[in-house]
Design a protein around this nucleic acid. Structure first.
Lengths: 187, 187
DNA sequence: CTCCTCCCGCGACAATTTGTCGCATCCCCT
DNA sequence: AGGGGATGCGACAAATTGTCGCGGGAGGAG
């Protein structure tokens, strides 16, 4: 029952989104905004470092695998240097124990694996209570969907190369093919 | 092969092992000892807290899922309170991103998934040099692991209630049971 | 142009994994 | 004691993978 009126009594939390996936960026921006956050999304490290000191966000959702130049991992420390109180949550499609450990040691507050929904992000930011779930979708993703999302991401990461994606997903090319054509994308 | 030169006359590193798996404890104790460490193994939290302040170890390999009373997770802080410079590496057979993050935030230096060999442990302790290439682990999670992580999260969310978790994951309880049985996680 | 390599789609079959049911406990609560 | 829910587990069919192998494009090197 977040019946908060449009006018936020307390100043809205400022959230900086850093992700080079335009689609994701837009979707997440909208979702967070709808949940009452003051959101700003940027696509690369340079923009992030330009915006952060000026806009002074309170929270930051940082994608780990940005475009080539620098990894999101190398942005954690600079960001914290500029804004010591920034609450950084790292996000990645290539989650691994190793990167999770590294990110936390560098100062990130939390680590999430894509795909995630705005609700989860807010939760990790500490801006939402796990208790109430008013918006219909609080259900964890079904395994099928989780798999689909992951496959898609990895496939895209390999520029649609099925063979490569299959290898990196640890399954047979034939199997990936089958999974792919059986899913004319529906939710 | 590790070349441990007799040069290791400086005080041997003191390592405290905490694991309730007797077999593992013994094996690891022997291995580390052979690598020149001064090792002491205990099987439960109480013993650990009794030994630590007195023996003052430099390193600690802590298993996360100990017997019921307390989780290894709850030992991290007490241990650090007693020995601020203790280098704690958490070890677990049920690795998950969530527990990795939690452990690091509580002060652990690193997080490893069983099975591990002494060499790896020493490496994480910083007592051995990386035998070969350091891995940037850019490998996306295999589908199997992604699934395992998700299942783990959801199951925990439902306090270990298999029926409930299965429902919310959109699969049969029987299937979840089966997935859970054969779990020893691999790469 | 030809060879080689890598990717793709796809058929076939065996090996596994799920989907589904049903049953026999156990707890917990009233 | 009785209902409701959770759990472990056997059984069997249905669906999904693992595995091989072909033939065909695309693109680079000789």
């Amino acid at each position: 029952m977040t019946m908060l009126t449009p006018e936020e009594s307390p100043p809205a939390a400022r959230v900086l989104l850093i992700d080079d996936d335009a689609a994701f960026l837009q979707a997440m921006t909208r979702s967070l905004a709808r949940h009452g956050c003051d959101v700003q999304g940027v696509a690369d490290p340079a923009q992030a470092m330009a915006v952060a000191p000026v806009w002074q966000p309170d929270y930051c959702l940082l994608d780990l695998n940005l475009e080539e130049p620098t990894s999101g991992m190398d942005l954690i420390e600079p960001l914290l240097a500029a804004l010591p109180d920034l609450n950084i949550v790292v996000l990645t499609g290539y989650a691994s124990l190793a990167t999770a450990v590294a990110a936390i040691k560098r100062g990130a507050r939390d680590y999430l694996a894509k795909p995630v929904d705005a609700q989860t992000v807010l939760l990790r930011f500490g801006l939402a209570e796990p208790a109430s779930m008013e918006d219909g979708e609080a259900v964890p993703m079904s395994l099928k969907r989780l798999e689909w999302e992951h496959i898609n991401r990895v496939l895209a990461d390999h520029d649609g190369n099925v063979s490569a994606a299959a290898r990196s997903l640890g399954l047979y090319r034939r199997t990936l093919q089958r999974k792919l054509d059986k899913k004319p994308v529906k939710q």
